[in-house]
Design a protein around this nucleic acid. Structure first.
Length: 603
DNA sequence: TAGAGAGGCACC
DNA sequence: AAACGGTGCCTCTCTA
């Protein structure tokens, strides 16, 4: 056993690094003594846990600890009897309460590499990222504590420790002469700095747990949010695990087409003097040289050269080439090539779902960036297929955020409009004496915390019409005014608001108007989250593929698709303060996700 | 040479 | 009185 002595402020910390199977006796003693509550973590070769089957992803270390002592187990090292791996499996199953920082990842790791199912661990896990979000959901750049281990350590424990831990892997990479992103698979298991870094993780997670638990607002606790958020995370981890089938042939074909198209337009641009179409500086300079007048600048004083500006020179071959080259290149790399790179050995892509990603707790999704795929068309969505013999089904909420606004405010006119299925956008337009477009944009802008300026820019209507529309909105729906004022007052007085479900959301002092949107957005997220949990209870999770704000995508067996869609839609729909948030199911005729759009366009 | 910031563009 | 909320990700550019 190698022992590393460390200090957090003045508290001694002891890190025991197992060097020989005979050291495991001491480890087992420690686990037995700490089995009621113990923190853990893993170090791995990379992030793609789904590649464990093909061996390009491996677990290297597993660590367990409390606030003052930890053990580092070199699981990657092969020893007779497989003792290290057996000991880790035993520890994970013996500990009654596990603490981890972003534990979903580690659960994927040990499931794929050690065969410990996440179903065994998730129900007894606390995740310090989720607890941190409940305390303060803001990122560092938003003035909050942040949620990475280093950030949370800096904010809640000790900045010196955070700096040393954060800096240690950078220093090791430098020492080994590799990039920081490449250090994980090559750093020797017994490297002192690596052992310190690894051994400190569970110690910090344990300390964070103790601190954060106390700081979770009483109201959130009373509403059961701690366990509710963990349950949601568990369901989403199962969705990540099963993944979504990639249509490899289609994806490759479309990628190739886009790449050659992009190359063709890049050559045209190069002949006209721009060899880097994504460089706004170059493009601006070339356009000016070609005699065009640029008028708009960015906030930092550079020439603005976006799609709208490029499109204003329809006769210029350079502008057109830049538009096409950028679009094709971006689409190829962001969607098609990325999916091909990310897929596992059985051609499935695994999204990474951050169940409380945004400061409003809205989920965010990477890997399959489901929330930013081009909407309303099949092109990119066709990369993903329902299982063989299944069809894609998409169920979404109708007018979710506006209905939530109505339900939260209790505004009688809005509620009445929704109950009668009235054309709300026309209603706003008529009440304000403006166009339908101005009315529709106003409805959304107000829910986003916007004013006439936003309506003017987005709807493309005159300043006068925009002002008239916004004024009309507040006059017509006075209940929303009351709600917005209450929330702003609360935000100004306390610096935060509580949502309908009991989440505390910090509001910037200089942007109190954002409170209305936070309340709406967060409540809407909770309705979708509730649906995800209820669908899981009803056994639907194996069919869930993606969650996209107000939409859930399923792969249902073809013969049962209509029946299952109906059941799922009923589970998802929700009555909030007496107002129904209805759901609508789209059943595709085939396996590709995009087929739901083909169906629409046929009619 | 990695990381951060900015610009741009995809979405709810 | 008025105030546009929340994301992911690619590329270029500058900095340390």
């Amino acid at each position: 056993m190698k022992v590393i002595e460390y200090r957090i402020k003045n508290d001694p910390v002891r890190i025991n690094v197992v060097e020989d199977p005979s050291d495991l006796a001491q480890f087992k003693k420690f686990i037995e003594a700490n089995q009621d509550l113990c923190a853990w973590d893993t170090e791995t070769t990379g992030l793609n846990w789904w590649d464990a089957k093909v061996g390009t992803f491996r677990i290297r270390l597993a660590q367990f600890g409390n606030g003052s002592e930890s053990f580092v187990i070199p699981v990657e090292k092969e020893v007779p009897g497989d003792n290290y791996r057996t000991a880790v499996r035993w520890a994970l199953r013996t500990i009654k309460r596990l603490i981890a920082h972003n534990g979903t990842y580690d659960m994927h790791v040990v499931e794929e590499t050690l065969g410990v199912r996440m179903e065994e661990l998730a129900p007894k896990s606390w995740d310090t990222v989720l607890l941190g979000k409940l305390v303060d959901s803001r990122a560092v750049k938003e003035g909050g504590p942040g949620h990475k281990l280093e950030e949370a350590t800096k904010h809640y424990i000790d900045p010196v420790v955070a700096e040393e831990v954060k800096g240690s892997m950078t220093a090791i990479a430098k020492e080994l002469g590799v990039k920081k992103s490449e250090v994980w698979p090559v750093v020797p298991l017994e490297h002192h700095g690596f052992n310190l870094y690894a051994g400190m993780d569970p110690v910090l997670a344990f300390r964070l747990y103790r601190t954060l638990r106390r700081l979770v607002p009483a109201r959130s606790k009373k509403r059961g949010l701690m366990s509710w958020e963990h349950r949601l995370a568990h369901v989403c981890a199962k969705i990540e695990r099963q993944g979504y089938i990639l249509d490899e042939a289609y994806t490759r074909r479309e990628a190739d087409k886009l790449i050659s198209e992009a190359e063709r337009w890049c050559r045209v641009a190069a002949e006209l003097g721009v060899d880097s179409v994504n460089s706004t500086d170059q493009v601006a300079e070339a356009l000016i040289e070609r005699g065009h007048k640029l008028t708009e600048k960015t906030p930092t004083g550079k020439w603005k050269v976006d799609d709208a500006i490029l499109s204003s020179f329809p006769a210029d071959p350079l502008a057109q080439a830049v538009i096409k080259a950028k679009k094709c290149g971006k689409w190829a790399k962001t969607w098609f090539l990325r999916f091909l790179e990310q897929r596992d050995s059985s051609n499935r892509c695994h999204a990474s779902i951050n169940t409380a990603g945004a400061r409003t707790f809205r989920m965010s999704c990477t890997g399959i960036p489901a929330q930013t795929l081009p909407a309303g068309e099949a092109f990119v969505r066709n990369c993903f297929l329902a299982e063989p013999g299944h069809v894609t089904v998409s169920i979404d909420y109708g007018n979710m955020e506006l209905r939530v606004m109505a339900a939260l405010s209790g505004d009688q006119t809005l509620l009445e409009a929704f109950r009668n299925d009235a054309d709300l956008h026309q209603m706003t337009a008529d009440a304000a004496g403006v166009s339908r477009k101005a009315g529709k944009t106003t409805n959304f802008c107000v829910a986003f915390g916007g004013g006439w300026q936003a309506v003017h820019e987005q709807a493309g209507v005159s300043v006068e019409e925009a002002k008239k529309a916004v004024k009309g909105f507040w006059r017509t729906y006075p209940g929303v005014r009351v709600l917005a004022d209450q929330l702003q007052k609360e935000a100004r007085r306390k610096g935060y608001i509580y949502t309908a479900t009991g989440h505390r959301l910090m509001v910037d002092r200089d942007r109190p108007y954002a409170a209305l949107n936070y309340a709406i957005q967060s409540a809407a997220r909770d309705i979708t989250a509730r649906a995800v949990i209820e669908l899981d209870r009803a056994g639907f999770t194996p069919w869930v593929r993606l969650i996209i704000h107000d939409e859930i995508v399923f792969s249902f067996p073809k013969e049962r698709a209509a029946e299952l869609a109906k059941q799922a839609a009923e589970i998802m729909q929700f009555t909030m303060n007496g107002l129904l948030i209805p759901t609508d199911a789209d059943i595709a005729e085939g396996r590709p996700w995009g087929a739901i759009y083909d169906k629409d366009t046929k009619h």
